[in-house]
Design a protein around this nucleic acid. Structure first.
Lengths: 218, 218
DNA sequence: GTGCGATGAATTATCGATAATATTCGACGC
DNA sequence: GCGTCGAATATTATCGATAATTCATCGCAC
């Protein structure tokens, strides 16, 4: 909750991050009007930093604003979410190929994330699992050495967006995080074995499961 | 010149457009420091609208800013350019598959861009060729129906500045735009014939040529 | 009842000034 | 000469107030 309800004065960048988080996690559904002075009161700042944060969000396409008519949250429906997961799949498959042969440093870092994911599921801490799973995937993209992949990965706000989807999976009957963990285990094993096509298969399996979860709208 | 040197007071959006134009056409090369009060004086406004324009540019990745250290035009080195072209290739290949079967409206629009590209090369107007070639590719991505592809394509467009690369090709000995035009003609023909694998081949050929051009640093 | 223009409340856009921070550059000790 | 400290300067960050514009509402003629 700390991200969603910060205390005291906030700097422009913090305000921006909070707004991004709220938009992506559904606190501000699509179409929500973001009133500058209301936000200014909440964050205990003047109107200027709020406006600047909104302009930055406008630049990255999260909101739109019309002159004298305010700023509204732009919607990303499930269709769009599926589309962006297709892009992520493409990037991560290719990232695997580019990252091979895998360095021992990479393998070790991924293993550390795997251990954390496992313990998170055992301790029934889905939020921690989500953190680690996203870090795992991001690390993989980073290992590709293609900086644009990482830039785009971050641009799509996967750290927050992925959370929405993973929370759904975590809460779904008959699914839950356990099967997803198993898939990640398998992926990690293939990576450790240096088996790129096998690992790519597992990545596809993971994204197939995510796509399935997106089939049934909330 | 009107875009580059507007007269009188400017609104925030106009300022933003002028700054974007200046960055894309090289008036502000990568690394240029954009000082707020200097720009404010030039556009005859106060600091606030300038800051907001800069924040919007920041959101779309055209500039970066560090707290109390100012805003600078972001550059993309050639290594990063190659990486982002790889991503563009992946997206455009996939977009072709998704766009099939091609609608007559799409085919007609692409043909219009082809005609414009041809006439631009004949008239030796490389800037117009560049505009049309980018529009051609963007239209293809749009036809995929995957909105995320288009979002990322636009995002890359800012970062990658297809313009810079195409200008290099246009100016290179023994290359020039003519061979690139021929490749686009071939691509267009395959699309018109509904031949998706053939079209994908041509897309790869186009990007291979671009990658070649990037091999030799300026 | 209906259309229409005036009016005021709400909101965005901009301004001018001030606070906070970084950077430059020169004095000083060694 | 060389590095270091510290004002002076330049620049960014934020503020509080005002102007500009939209939107909803109300009165009023018909």
């Amino acid at each position: 909750m700390s991200v969603l309800a910060p205390k005291g004065k906030c700097t422009r960048r913090r305000i921006r991050d909070v707004l991004v988080a709220r938009i992506l996690d559904g606190t501000y559904p699509a179409g929500t009007r973001l009133k500058e002075l209301t936000l200014a009161r909440e964050f205990d700042v003047s109107q200027a930093p709020i406006r600047e944060a909104l302009r930055e969000l406008e630049g990255s396409g999260l909101v739109t604003s019309e002159r004298y008519r305010g700023t509204r949250v732009r919607g990303a429906d499930y269709r769009e979410l599926r589309g962006s997961y297709e892009l992520r799949l493409m990037m991560e498959e290719r990232a695997l190929e580019l990252a091979a042969p895998f360095s021992t440093a990479l393998i070790e870092e991924l293993a550390a994330h795997m251990r954390a994911m496992t313990s998170a599921v055992e301790a029934d801490e889905p939020e921690r699992y989500i953190d680690e799973a996203l870090a795992f995937h991001r690390r993989l993209v980073q290992a590709s050495g293609n900086h644009s992949f990482l830039t785009v990965w971050d641009f799509m706000y996967w750290n927050v967006r992925g959370r929405i989807v993973l929370r759904r999976i975590a809460g779904q009957e008959g699914r839950g995080l356990k099967p997803l963990l198993d898939l990640h285990r398998a992926l990690n094993a293939r990576i450790r074995a240096g088996d790129v096509p096998g690992a790519a298969d597992k990545v596809r399996a993971i994204f197939r499961r995510i796509a399935d979860a997106l089939e049934e709208p909330a």
